[in-house]
Design a protein around this nucleic acid. Structure first.
Length: 755
DNA sequence: GGTAATACTTAGTATACCACGG
DNA sequence: CCGTGGTATACTAAGTATTACC
């Protein structure tokens, strides 16, 4: 396997590499920026992850980290700097589910399982029969061969679009079956609309009719009462309204650690000064001399007072919110009332990016009607801007799904108001996503064998592409788009990995060809993993790293656009992220099969489900900060466990004496007593076990977030099928919101569903 | 062919809410 | 009835991918 390829490798090196380093102008440029950036980095302070609050255990982890890094380091200076920075900001992961982490994930290593894939998976034929006619081919789905029923409905949709929407119904509605449900609650448009039984739009049209009330703006600023003062240089100072408002943003964050960070303070102060009058600007020149504590205390008191409000007052607020929701929280899209996800405009405040963000502390400005673009249908009742104001624009673009948009001032990106996940428009897309992943399942073997062949390619770009794809597939890494330097925190994904993010060990911990990954991914969450890889991959990585600086790109001949173009050729609709979806879902399905024991009771089965879910979360590296109350709640649980243990001891003692008693007396009654004591012991043992299992479960979940994978990566039909198969109420797995989002899956998946 | 803009999904965390035991 | 703690929801940042543009 090896010899000749080593040869091959070196050929390539000499061939393409030399030019490589400088061929890509932009990449090169990038690097220079990055160097500069290092200096900046130095003054950057620790990120949220060094948070003081998760004290003990957290610190321990950190220390471990540090050791590890020392251990592995010993190189370049710059690197050290970086490492130091990393140490500080990184949220340590290891120390806990180590076994799982180290070999990637608990689930069977994918590559290894390749050979038996065929036996494991159902045949393609079977697959096909499961598919509904409107399945995947999504984009180029042709409306033709639809069941007549669908046909009618499709027609109906068209008709109705042309008419005026809501006033009518229940007349000659073709959906007679549903009609009466519609009637009873006039607000609820046809109880539960099964959009998944209807035909989808083709050719990029997203809707035919769209009407909504526009956004809800942030409440205007309310100036502070005059007795609440701001002090500059020990002296009280009355601020102009604008300056005061921005000051309150800072005051509200005062006990947050980040108000002590230089970058945060610098950015804040700069933007604050922009809001000041010229007199204020002249006077206030040093943030260090600003005293916001009175303001801060005032807000604390306010929120305290809010908590203490009477029930009636709270009720009133609740009702007002409900009213707002009813008025602005819904839209009509194609004849159906749909819930809007975020109808409130983001209020002004100080920007806090995640991780080590260069723009933290900047002022996120207030959005006015003049900033807002409204999207709705021409023939709808357009939302009115607040009195005396105008929208920036009203447009009628039915090729997009958003209702409202505006441009945000921190990154200059566009923000949108869109529909809830329970809406047709989101649901269809979600469904389609899983269908694409299922199509990948059918050809993943082919793709895998191809990229393995490509490891031997004589073209550098192809080798890089194939190794990157291997990582994306095996480790579920994100694609890794390039990002603008200095605009965001320094994070990477697969294609943007740098040499400094991996370490190669020909041999480590008894395993050959180990790659150690250590980088910050999305949301500055650390990815740390040690993975044994194929020799060829290892050799390739050595090749890619040769003659490079730590801050150089590992895959200098690759980016996400190249990769996705390639993937597109392998399978229609295939992109890098499909692998994550596919691997997450297939892992869940497989783990469920493996972990569910038929004889177990429902709680035990649910535990198995959670374990399967957790395997996926670990695979996808979905982490969370340990809940603030974690230690305490663990303690509570432990107390319960201890109490249960005592109880058990008591019960056992009683059993013993009952037995002794029975031995002496030998009568029915004492025998019965023994039996009942025995049962009691059993029951208590069971309860104890449950508690202990719960404790384990919680401990294992300390830093792992299950929600993200549940919501975004796991084909809900797998879970629904599992529930049906084992008689688990679906409510045990999905809460109300989740059931709404996955209504399509709950409705259509039966217990034989195979992903 | 590369870059910027756009649209939409995925992400972790702050906070609201609600059930429950004292 | 109240506080507590645990879950659900709100929020919005940060990704991915496609499209528009030059």
């Amino acid at each position: 396997m090896s010899g000749d390829h080593t040869h091959n490798d070196s050929q390539i090196e000499s061939g393409s590499r030399v030019n490589d380093a400088h061929k890509h102008k932009d990449k090169h440029k990038d690097k220079e920026h990055r160097h500069k950036d290092h200096k900046k980095d130095k003054d950057r302070e620790r990120s949220k992850y060094s948070n003081s609050e998760h004290k003990d255990s957290e610190k321990k982890h950190r220390d471990k980290d540090r050791e590890k890094m020392k251990h592995k380091d010993g190189s370049v200076e710059r690197h050290k700097d970086k490492e130091k920075r990393k140490e500080e900001k990184i949220r340590s992961l290891d120390g806990k589910p180590k076994k799982e982490k180290e070999n990637g994930f608990a689930s069977p290593p994918r590559i290894k399982s390749e050979p038996d894939n065929d036996s494991f998976y159902p045949s393609p034929k079977h697959e096909k029969s499961l598919k509904r006619e409107r399945d995947d081919d999504d984009s180029e789905f042709k409306p033709k061969k639809i069941k007549t029923e669908n046909d009618k409905k499709a027609k109906k949709r068209k008709q109705e679009d042309e008419e005026d929407i809501k006033p009518k119904k229940k007349t000659k509605d073709k959906k007679g079956e549903v009609a009466d449900g519609k009637k009873k609650a006039k607000k609820e448009p046809e109880e539960k609309w099964k959009w998944w039984e209807e035909e989808r739009y083709t050719d990029g049209v997203k809707w035919k009719f769209l009407e909504h009330k526009g956004p809800v703006f942030a409440p205007p600023y309310e100036p502070l009462p005059s007795n609440i003062k701001f002090y500059y240089d020990e002296k009280p100072m009355k601020l102009s309204e604008k300056a005061e408002e921005v000051a309150t943003f800072f005051a509200k964050m005062l006990d947050h650690e980040y108000t002590t960070k230089d970058i945060f303070r610098k950015n804040f102060f700069k933007d604050w000064r922009k809001e000041m009058t010229s007199e204020e600007k002249a006077k206030i020149t040093d943030l260090g001399k600003c005293n916001f504590t009175e303001m801060s205390d005032y807000f604390k008191a306010q929120s305290e007072a809010k908590k203490q409000m009477s029930k009636e007052e709270k009720q009133k607020i609740k009702e007002e919110n409900e009213r707002l929701l009813q008025e602005y929280g819904f839209c009509v899209m194609d004849n159906h009332k749909e819930r809007i996800a975020n109808f409130r405009i983001e209020p002004p405040g100080l920007f806090r990016g995640r991780g080590d963000h260069p723009k933290m502390g900047m002022l996120k400005r207030r959005i006015r009607p003049e900033d807002i673009i409204i999207n709705c249908s021409k023939d709808s009742k357009h939302p009115k801007p607040p009195p005396g104001t105008k929208w920036k624009e009203v447009r009628h673009d039915n090729k997009v799904t958003w209702l409202v948009s505006w441009t945000e001032n921190i990154q200059g990106s566009i923000k949108y108001i869109m529909l809830n996940p329970s809406s047709r428009i989101k649901g269809e897309k979600d469904w389609q996503k899983y269908e694409t992943a299922r199509r990948l399942k059918k050809c993943v073997d082919r793709i895998r064998s191809q990229y393995r062949d490509d490891w031997k390619s004589k073209e550098m770009r192809i080798r890089q592409r194939s190794v990157a794809l291997y990582f994306i597939d095996k480790l579920a890494l994100r694609a890794g788009n390039e990002k603008e330097e200095g605009e965001t925190a320094d994070t990477v994904g697969c294609c943007s990995l740098r040499v400094e993010h991996i370490k190669l060990y020909p041999e480590k911990d008894g395993q050959e060809f180990v790659v150690e990954f250590d980088f910050l991914g999305k949301d500055s969450i650390r990815y740390y993993n040690k993975v044994p890889v194929e020799k060829r991959v290892f050799k390739n990585l050595q090749l890619f790293m040769e003659n490079k600086q730590p801050e150089d790109d590992l895959f200098d001949r690759l980016n996400t656009s190249i990769l996705n173009k390639h993937l597109q050729e392998l399978m229609d609709g295939l992109t890098a992220k499909v692998f994550r979806t596919y691997n997450a879902s297939i892992t869940l399905q497989q783990q469920l099969k493996e972990l569910t024991s038929p004889e177990e009771n429902i709680p035990a089965k649910i535990l198995s489900y959670n374990r399967a879910n957790r395997a996926v979360a670990i695979l996808c590296n979905h982490q969370r900060a340990p809940p603030k109350t974690f230690e305490k709640s663990m303690q509570n649980l432990q107390t319960k466990i201890d109490a249960k243990k005592d109880q058990l001891a008591d019960a056992k003692r009683e059993l013993k004496s009952a037995k002794a008693d029975a031995k002496v007396r030998r009568d029915e009654k004492s025998k019965k007593a023994v039996e009942s004591k025995k049962k009691a012991v059993q029951r208590i043992e069971e309860q104890l076990m449950k508690l202990e299992v719960q404790a384990t479960d919680r401990e294992e979940n300390k830093q792992i977030a299950l929600g993200t994978s549940k919501l975004n990566y796991l084909d809900p039909r797998i879970s629904v099928a599992w529930c049906k198969k084992w008689g688990i109420p679906v409510e045990k797995i999905y809460n109300k919101t989740q059931r709404e989002k996955f209504a399509w899956a709950i409705d259509m998946a039966d217990e034989d569903f195979e992903f």
